[in-house]
Design a protein around this nucleic acid. Structure first.
Length: 403
RNA sequence: GCAGGGGUGGUCGAGUGGUUAAUGGCACCGGGCUGUAAACCCGGCGGGUUCACACCCUACGUAGGUUCGAAUCCUACCCCCUGCACCA
């Protein structure tokens, strides 16, 4: 690829590249010298369960790897050990060394579903931060003015609105920026929420006499609700370690509008290919549902296999198109006896409380052996070794066996 | 330390002595329509007993108190926020 082609390739899906010209210079130099670029991604060791949102940036990193560059996957263990000492942010707990190590392991297992391990360096920022010490850190802080720090939007806002802003919060961007210096990063990737921190890296590198890193900013992928960014705590995520059927189902539940976002940010299709799909949906030539099936299969195949994707589709059709029971249903045993229906649901964990069970029944959400049961006082007799299929809602099935 | 404001169900946010398990929005759950899309419609949304009418328990930061009766009043305590003061 020519440098221009490379730039175009890297640009797909990005929000912004700062500055594109800097990136070009770096790409050119790398091509000339044969020395790969060092492409950094900083991450928090808190939530090691990677979801589709994280993969947006990971995919971009892989794009760099495909061009021969080196990815530095940086785990911010130093900041993780400190967390948010004020304890206000539950998303930033203080972690122990052991927890961080365990999380790092989990990261490793997951990121290589996207990244090429041969071109990935895994680093920890405690490597240099531990050595820095209080003195070093204050020296570091001397390179940045308060005004510069306060340029960050949310800091400025919170100040303006008289909301609290703790000192450690303004210090963290410094740590992240210093990571870029320590690593002599050529490029750093991040989501739009990281823009300030990424730019801080540029500034600090300049202060330390390094050539500023190019910054590649990726959009934040919306979660399955289509509104808020995907995150575990909001429960709107698609985890890459989830079983194929789950991933498939979750993708199928996203809105049509959101589907195009996912196509753009979570598949390798080119912008032109996506535009063509979109046109076929809008003209009515194709049912959007089928295009979504295709998306779901692609995403499943990315984290599992193409065979898994086919199986997931088949299972999905079985349950939702043909309204049959799934291929494999979890089985639970329970003492053979006669049960009041709500009691049964609670005993096998299909409902959290009797009140909830009753509601489900009254509202027509419960089927036993395929038959809808709406009477709360019904009794179900379960003989020894007899099984029955209990369904709650559209997708929760359980085979209950008497013992 | 001083002053002011505030702590209500998953969340936001009403409620300032009594039909208040607590208005409303969001989220969530079940049903309907569909393509498990969106939009929309219906129902639900602390727990327990009951076929059911109904009854009981728990809940408005914590602990006491006043009252026939408190989320609402009083006292103490805890926590949060803002400002002031301090900044050698």
């Amino acid at each position: 690829m020519t440098i221009d082609e490379q730039l175009d390739f890297l640009r797909k899906g990005t929000v912004e590249i700062i500055r594109a010209e800097d990136l070009r210079v770096k790409l050119e130099r790398s091509a000339r010298t044969g020395k790969p670029l060092r492409v950094k991604l900083g991450t928090d060791p808190t939530a090691p369960d990677i979801h589709l949102g994280h993969t947006v940036v990971l995919r971009k990193l892989r794009a760099f790897q495909e061009l021969g560059h080196t990815v530095i996957f940086l785990i911010g263990d130093f900041t993780g050990l400190i967390g948010d000492p004020s304890g206000k942010s539950s998303t930033r707990p203080q972690l122990t060394r052991a927890e961080i190590d365990a999380n790092a392991e989990t990261y490793k297992q997951q990121i290589y579903k996207v990244l090429d391990p041969a071109k990935t360096e895994l680093r920890f920022n405690s490597e240099w931060m531990d050595k820095l010490g209080a003195e070093g850190f204050i020296r570091l802080a001397a390179h940045v003015t308060v005004k510069q720090i306060l340029e960050r939007d949310d800091f400025e806002q919170r100040l303006a609105e008289n909301r609290p802003l703790a000192l450690h919060e303004v210090l963290y961007p410094l740590v992240m920026a210093y990571d870029s210096v320590a690593l002599a990063a050529d490029v750093e990737l991040g989501g739009t929420d990281q823009k300030f921190n990424l730019l801080m890296g540029r500034n600090l590198q300049r202060e330390y006499g390094q050539e500023p890193q190019a910054v590649v900013i990726m959009p934040l992928l919306e979660g399955t609700d289509g509104v808020q960014k995907m995150s575990k705590s909001l429960g709107n995520y698609i985890g890459i370690n989830e079983p194929p059927n789950e991933i498939f189902g979750k993708v199928m539940s996203i809105s049509d509008e959101l589907m195009w976002r996912y196509y753009e940010l979570s598949t390798d299709l080119t912008s032109a290919e996506i535009a063509a799909l979109r046109a076929s949906a809008e003209s009515g030539a194709r049912n959007p549902r089928d295009i979504k099936v295709e998306l779901a299969k692609r995403i499943v195949a990315d984290f599992h296999t193409a065979t898994d994707a086919d199986a997931a589709e088949e299972e999905f059709n079985r349950i939702f198109k043909r309204k049959e029971a799934p291929d494999e249903v979890e089985e639970r045993t329970i003492a053979a006896s006669a049960y009041k229906l709500p009691r049964l649901l609670v005993d096998v964990n299909l409902a959290p409380s009797m009140a909830e069970a009753r509601r489900l029944i009254e509202q027509g959400g419960v089927r036993v052996d395929g038959e809808r049961r709406t009477r709360v006082d019904d009794e179900v007799a379960l003989q020894k070794d007899q099984t029955m299929l209990v369904q709650v809602g559209k997708r929760r099935f359980l085979r209950v066996r008497g013992v």
